[in-house]
C-alpha cells in the first residue's frame, strides 16, 4: 500500500482535531481533540520514518507520547480544578485571563 495514503489519513485526523479544538466548548472534548492532533502527528512521523528508512521519526513519536502523557496529567488536573471552582467544564467560562 502506498505510504502516502497514511499521510492523507494523518492530515484528515489533524484537521478533525483542529476543528474540534476551535469549535467545541467542553474542555474534555477540546482536550481529546488535542490528543487527536498529537496522534495525527505521530502517524505522520511513523509514516515518514518508513518512507525515509531511518528511525528518527519513530524516536520522535515516542517523545510525543511522553509529552502527551505529561500534558494529560497537567491538563486534566486543571480541568478538574476549574470544574470545582466554577461547576462548568466550558472553556468559554474561563475567560478571566484578559485586560
Amino acid at each position: 500500500m502506498n505510504p502516502v495514503s497514511y499521510l492523507y489519513l494523518s492530515a484528515l485526523l489533524f484537521t478533525i482535531g483542529g476543528v474540534g479544538v476551535l469549535l467545541r466548548r467542553n474542555a474534555i472534548v477540546v482536550f481529546m481533540c488535542v490528543e487527536l492532533m498529537l496522534n495525527a502527528c505521530n502517524l505522520a512521523f511513523v509514516t515518514f520514518s518508513r518512507m525515509h528508512g531511518n528511525l528518527d521519526g519513530q524516536v520522535f513519536a515516542f517523545f510525543t507520547m511522553v509529552v502527551a502523557a505529561a500534558e494529560v496529567v497537567v491538563g486534566l488536573a486543571i480541568i478538574v480544578s476549574v470544574y470545582r471552582a466554577r461547576h462548568s467544564a466550558s472553556v468559554d467560562d474561563a475567560s478571566l485571563l484578559k485586560l
Binding site: 483542529g18 476551535l22 477540546v30 472553556v91 468559554d92 474561563a94 475567560s95 485571563l97 484578559k98 485586560l99
Partner: peptide, 13 residues
C-alpha cells in the same frame, strides 16, 4: 485579548 481560549487558538492556527 478577550480571554477566550478558542479565539487564541484560532489566531494560533
Amino acid at each position: 485579548q478577550n480571554g477566550y481560549v478558542r479565539s487564541y487558538a484560532v489566531s494560533m492556527f
